[in-house]
Design a protein around this nucleic acid. Sequence first.
DNA 1: CTTCCGGGTTGATTTAGGTCAAGGCGGCTC
DNA 2: GAGCCGCCTTGACCTAAATCAACCCGGAAG
Lengths: 246, 246
Amino acid sequence: MMATQTISQECGDCPIRHRAVCARCEPDELQTLEEIKYYRNFQAGQTIIWSGDRMDFVGSVVSGIATLTQTMEDGRCQMVGLLLPSDFVGRPGRDGAAYDVVATTDVVMCCFRKRPFEDLMTSTPHIAHRLLEMTLDELDAAREWMLVLGRKTAREKIASLLSIIARRDNTLNKRNAKTRMVIDLPLTREAMADYLGLTLETVSRQISALKKDGVIELEGKRHVIIPDIRRLMDEAGDDSDGGFLV
Amino acid sequence: MMATQTISQECGDCPIRHRAVCARCEPDELQTLEEIKYYRNFQAGQTIIWSGDRMDFVGSVVSGIATLTQTMEDGRCQMVGLLLPSDFVGRPGRDGAAYDVVATTDVVMCCFRKRPFEDLMTSTPHIAHRLLEMTLDELDAAREWMLVLGRKTAREKIASLLSIIARRDNTLNKRNAKTRMVIDLPLTREAMADYLGLTLETVSRQISALKKDGVIELEGKRHVIIPDIRRLMDEAGDDSDGGFLV
DNA sequence: CTTCCGGGTTGATTTAGGTCAAGGCGGCTC
DNA sequence: GAGCCGCCTTGACCTAAATCAACCCGGAAG
């Protein structure tokens, strides 16, 4: 098994290899991954994958933010996932995409050609294993979100979204848990509304309300200061600390 | 590799072995599964697993219906999954349960002790593979449900739920697709409400409305006749046929 | 047979959030 | 600087669903 040191050298800045799949790869497996790997860039607003399209790659987000959305014929739209750097995209064993994937900011993706990746997966148990783990995480996240969508008030929904982004930010940057936090909202009000099952007006109103009540502070439209994370999580109605302050 | 014939003999009536995991098991793997396997019975209303509890088994539903639910401190409750016969329960690699699992009817589960099952999983790639596939299916279902919860009206929600149950019934019994169908509602109005993010009164009202409009017919409270599945799916607002009438 | 009780229905009223509409603000081009 | 455009905010009003409340129905217990 390779040491972390070597992996860093071999893998460059590709998060799928660092974090998601290759922490335990042998050199020849790394070699295979290297051969089937390529990068793709997308501009903000660009659709990366259309729902129903044939997908010939899997991969992970290197930088930027993308969303998974489902849209009804009449235009109603629900975001079903938020892709941040290191998140995996793709459905090994499936041919078609199930959702639209849209770049919210400029996005760099690290892609692997699908067939060879699937072959590698069958021959390398720990990759399948890791993928199962990641899928279970996504399933948990989706189910947590079902509670938000089905049972929370608009105010709680906003607080939940901010909590989740703050949490992701926190673990991503490996900062120590703090009570005061600053986050950069990567979403327009409309995108937030599509995530939360609200209208953009309601999102705007509730953000104003949280600000008035001192739960958050705003600097411009997108820069959110959270004076006390626990206060925010309280507003979100979560019973747990969401892994924040252990 | 064993022929299907042999598997049938070996596996008895345990769906995890038939459908979920063992379609490609070697005899010695079947032997291992047999050794770590046991059955458990639950009565209607009984909680099978409490959220947060340590889980020492994985398994699948043999008969009956169970629900996955999340509950907030103030009692608000959201169902995040519906377990029908052949559905898998458990999170390989995770120790704690993430949700309450409650038996809605009497339930028989086929369980496998968790550690040995996980060991078998690492040594048997196709089991991990199959599990990944099942988890991806669940993820798709969860995300489909997010659209229902976030963006559909009460009437559409009811129609969606009936469609899904009808669809499951259909594939489970391997019937040919028909337009006329009869389903046995396995849920109380309250459980339906918890699934749909509604109140039980609204569920009741919308069911009455669908009946008045001839989309469904009722025999007693729980027996639902669907004269025309496509009409129902139309009410659900789904663009696809949901794999019904291919 | 009567009572009770859990599930279900239906009506009256309230309310959270949607809808419609009028600006505000910051950045961009011309 | 003027005008424009995308994004955001705020207000007035409306409506779908929640809430509160009464009642129905069928099956089990006494």
